[in-house]
Design a protein around this nucleic acid. Sequence first.
DNA 1: CCTCCATCGTTGACAACCTCCACGATACCG
DNA 2: CGGTATCGTGGAGGTTGTCAACGATGGAGG
Lengths: 146, 146
Amino acid sequence: MEVFMVQPLADDLGFLLSRASGQVVRATNAALAAHGLRVRQYSVLVLACETADGISQREVAAVLGLDPSQVVLLVDELAAAGLVERQAPEGDRRTRLVVPTREGRRVREAAGRDADAAVEAPLGLLGRAERDRLRDMLTRIWTASG
Amino acid sequence: MEVFMVQPLADDLGFLLSRASGQVVRATNAALAAHGLRVRQYSVLVLACETADGISQREVAAVLGLDPSQVVLLVDELAAAGLVERQAPEGDRRTRLVVPTREGRRVREAAGRDADAAVEAPLGLLGRAERDRLRDMLTRIWTASG
DNA sequence: CCTCCATCGTTGACAACCTCCACGATACCG
DNA sequence: CGGTATCGTGGAGGTTGTCAACGATGGAGG
């Protein structure tokens, strides 16, 4: 069957955006599956690895644009897999810091390489300069409705 | 709380893509709610309205990148709302054409205007030329992994 | 000190969505 | 005519998005 394109949909940035997003997420998930991860968990792991003293679950939710209740489950799964730990910070006993284990850092590295490689399938046609422009535009979309 | 940005995530096109996509979809859904629609249903309605003699459910699934079983439910809901009808085509008795009703065309127009307006919130910072570039890039992402 | 209010993590519920598999009906090809 | 493919449909299972509530803790003001 020939898949044609309907003009009003091909012009709709919202449609194109969610379709492209799904494409990339699917490719990334396929790559991360080898490490027992999904994109959500991987994002949390990256966040934990990238901050010096760990990151509170509240901050994870804010940065990723998720509901705090989702972060609980994601951290549960990562902790069950031995990739992160919940640590109590110095001052505030309400918050729990998400801190990567040694194994967590290792997996994050390996998974990151595979994910980056997998994303080349959908993004392969975009040059370096184009990716920079795309990054810039997507960032501004986010800031526009913060 | 200050929402900082972590470099490896701010650089990740997949992350930015899904975040921006969610933003736009949420805004669109909010606008479409006044018409009793969600983006999925609206997309199907647009497809039905834009094709001359109706469109088969299989084609809807292919164009939107959905599973055929999802299309069944979406058409069910649209039909229950009186916006589309399932019609038998001339030649092939397996396929069912999705054809808009008069009311369906009316709602599509009104909902389309509201949706376009709502999308200006997240996309407002992008100029006309930028949107063209974005459209082009997103389209190529799709064709890259077809 | 103590009370009021905000914040954090957590749990639960519910709708939406995606993915896959299986089936009956119909079409097409050899 | 018989085997194979396609279409719509139904169902299962897992993931996600959204919202409301709760207990525990922190902080500000009287």
